[in-house]
Amino acid sequence: MDKILLRDVCFIYGKGTPFEKCALDHVNLSIKSGRITGIIGHTGSGKSTMMMLLNGLAKPTSGSVLIDGYDIQSRPQDVMQEWLLKEPYAGMRRSAAKRAIKQEIERRRRQLCFRVGLVMQYPEYQLFEETVYKDIAYGPSNMGLSKEEIRDRVLSAMRQSGLSEKLCEVSPFDLSGGQKRRVAIAGVIAMRPEVLVLDEPAAGLDPQGREQIFGEIRDYQRETGSTVILVSHSMEDMAQYCDDLAVMAHSKMILQGTREEVFAQTDLLETVDLDIPQITKLIQKLRQRGLNLPANIYTVDGAVAALRQLYAQTETGGREE
């Protein structure tokens, strides 16, 4: 089922100024519920802009964004005339009604942020509280939850993002880069969103840190069954952790489907300077030479296992002859 649907979405920065720039050009995208979807594209291909549309931080210039089949975009100026005629606004004074409509739209936007949790690029820059606990609790307390509920959510979010409970009372500014990143991610997970969107969650981390963060995100997805969207320009990471993939280039969506479907289109990927993982390429070459290997291998470990199996098969096959 489609959790999120983008229909013919355009986004233009600074419309009507000399600095006008088109960031999304008639983009269509469907995100399936309960899966990890990866969005790949080079810097400036429009990925990050698209993520801001998903939780209502930005509104598309044209087109629509649907979550669970409902259109999420309502700008005050778009709905004002219509709502002013409806209850409960019809009976109010005009200025009071306008203010009430604006507040209602803001309330809906916030609700949307709780449903679609967005972790921005380099999220450690958003930390501000004195302690890790308080910072993670910022989101849940904005939701107006009870103290016990907040505590419960913060602790489970810390566990899910690989933070030890001992860090609760530590200042987030005393932590290492990787740990700060985890605190920021936990701050969004603690809101228990239906959809978790992460924009380059491993940017600037060492290979080990990358693997850990991605591993934790995958475990989180398996545990909660929520929908996860990962944005990255690294094919290797995406191949390893995503179920579905969508490829963007020059503000356009050029390819989407399951991981296997997307990586089968090697030629198309190469035309936009994106490469399939090295190891997958090697396996493809071996397959072309006639070796009987599966096509969906994206990690070195997977390749080793497949080759071992093949070797074992030929060994036994040889003996039978």
């Binding site: 931080l57 921005m120 958003q126 989101g139 904005n142 809101m191």
Partner: peptide, 8 residues
């Protein structure tokens, strides 16, 4: 935007 995303 980051804080808005956390419901600010």
């Amino acid at each position: 935007n980051a804080q808005k995303a956390r419901g600010a």
